[in-house]
């Protein structure tokens, strides 16, 4: 464990908690893409099946349980409890265009042709594009609530910190996982546009609105 991975995990945890609390306290999921949240639930489910097969540490196991629990709770709040506030018209990204190619790629390019490894690879590839429905929805509505931008910032920062963690681990441990690194770079690049808007607008107290 190094400081970058720790802060990456804490940023990821913050994002998940911010979103869950925002929906719970405002009793509304307006502006939130339910499709992205379903993709994240799939990412955690397919990645953390090793909860059943191996124990790495209390930290590792508890964080995985929290991620899985919160992501399913968030999906439940969006599609069940507060479904009346779900903006289905703007959450129109065709996720099948993500899942099918990602699934195919996971079968073709992986470290080991075993079920757990292919599911892990699928979750790594899927996570790198899972935020697209959310970013697409913001581009369609032309704006985002400030709390949603904080959620997105933490979500994007987490994998950016992981990139630094992988540089650290390569330098000090000789460890590197090309699949995770390439997917992590793609994932972080997808946030660059948002990062620019967040820093130039939200951090200056303005609302995040895209030029319609």
């Amino acid at each position: 464990m190094n400081i970058f991975r720790l802060f990456g995990d804490l940023s990821h945890l913050a994002a998940i908690i911010i979103l869950l609390l925002k929906i719970w306290k405002s009793r509304s999921c307006a502006g939130i893409s339910g499709k992205s949240q379903i993709l994240f639930a799939i990412v955690f489910t397919t990645r953390y099946l090793d909860l059943l097969t191996s124990f790495i540490s209390l930290y590792n196991t508890s964080m995985k349980m929290i991620y899985i629990g919160c992501s399913y709770a968030t999906v439940y709040l969006i599609y069940a409890k507060f479904r009346a506030t779900y903006d289905g018209n703007h959450d129109s990204f065709r996720v099948e265009f993500l899942i099918v190619p990602v699934g195919g790629l996971a079968v073709l390019i992986n470290h080991d042709f075993s079920l757990l490894e292919i599911l892990w690879t699928f979750s790594i590839y899927l996570e790198s594009v899972a935020i697209l429905p959310q970013l697409f929805m913001i581009s369609k509505t032309g704006e985002a609530e400030t709390i949603t931008t904080h959620y997105l910032f933490c979500q994007g920062l987490y994998r950016a910190l992981y990139l630094i963690n992988w540089i650290w681990r390569f330098y000090f441990e000789g460890f590197f996982d090309m699949i995770a690194i390439v997917a992590g770079v793609v994932q972080t690049i997808l946030y660059c546009d948002f990062f620019y808007l967040y820093v130039t607008k939200v951090l200056k107290g303005k609302k995040l609105s895209l030029p319609a």
Partner: peptide, 10 residues
């Protein structure tokens, strides 16, 4: 056959 790398990251 490459050993599936131990997954210690989240």
């Amino acid at each position: 056959k490459k050993e599936a790398a131990m997954k210690d990251e989240l």
